[in-house]
Nucleic acid binder design. Structure first.
Length: 269
DNA sequence: GCGGTATGCCTAA
DNA sequence: TAGGCCTACCGCG
């Protein structure tokens, strides 16, 4: 689940469900140091939840901030309060008045200092889901880098929030082969790429899953797209657009998916 | 029950 | 580049 859309959706949902409340925070698994957050109190008030790329920040009273990164396996489970007993693997449980959020399997779940937060934000590139992000650094990087565009899209310091599914899908929609050197893209091409990422990620936030088919407009009511039709090439053996073979290869240690018909490699020199 | 796989990312070499 | 870490699920038998 966790590309940028999952993170932003969690921030929105969790802030709405728990923001302004005094939460009972526990770590059934024991690997999250609850006392550091709670001190001697038994509850702590959550002020807001922020999302940057794939990072979440739970901001509590007195500026105490919990950083969460889901990694590949992390997941949230939402329960009604009072919640059922947690599964053993639950790293952090946030129990509010009517909603309880359980966090399982994250790469990171820790109380952080303002300095640490600043360091995290300093090392990630613009996030297409944030209104306050400027794509300029993304354009600048692409314009001068020989890095394959498919590798650049997974580099969180270049653009944040994009993961392996969006990488495959956005490049397919633009008919770009992942091995194309970044700087072979025109400025217009780079702008199209950013705009498409914004659109697809926003759609992902609304639908709570990645859907890149059945038109790109964020039209209001739309029919639920069946799972098998939600992507063009990611995880597929044949291209949903043309029926041609989808080729797989490793790029930046992740499986890249390419329709060799729709996305022929063009050596731009 | 086991092994493989996954939408991530860090570190050592 | 390889290995490690985190967890759930699925197909196999």
């Amino acid at each position: 689940m966790p590309e940028g859309h999952t993170i932003h959706r969690a921030a929105r949902d969790h802030e709405r469900a728990l923001g302004g409340q005094r939460l009972a925070v526990t770590s059934p698994q024991g690997r999250f140091d609850v006392e550091k957050l709670l001190g001697r109190a038994d509850r702590v008030k959550l002020k807001r939840v922020e999302a940057y790329g794939k990072h979440l920040f739970y901001v509590f009273e007195r500026g105490r901030t919990v950083h969460v990164h889901l990694g590949l396996f992390g997941r949230f489970y939402r329960r009604k309060s009072p919640p059922p007993p947690p599964r053993e693997s639950t790293r952090m449980r946030l129990e509010g008045e009517s909603v309880t959020i359980d966090l399982v399997g994250p790469t990171a779940c820790e109380l952080i200092t303002p300095k640490k937060k600043a360091e995290i934000l300093a090392r990630i590139g613009p996030d297409p889901l944030r209104e306050d992000s400027s794509p300029q650094p993304f354009y600048d990087y692409l314009a001068r880098s020989k890095t394959p565009i498919g590798a650049a899209l997974l580099d969180q310091s270049v653009v944040s929030g994009v993961g392996n599914v969006y990488r495959a899908e956005v490049l397919h929609l633009l008919k770009i082969h992942p091995s194309t050197p970044a700087r072979a893209l025109s400025r217009g091409g780079a702008e199209s790429l950013w705009t498409l990422l914004v659109g697809l990620l926003r759609r992902g936030v609304e639908e709570k899953r990645i859907v890149t088919t059945h038109g790109l407009a964020l039209a209001v009511p739309r029919k639920r797209v069946p799972r098998a039709e939600s992507v063009h090439v990611y995880g597929r053996r044949t291209c949903r657009s043309c029926g041609g073979d989808v080729q797989r290869f490793l790029q930046r240690a992740r499986t890249a998916y390419v329709c060799v018909t729709c996305q022929p490699y063009v050596d731009a020199g």
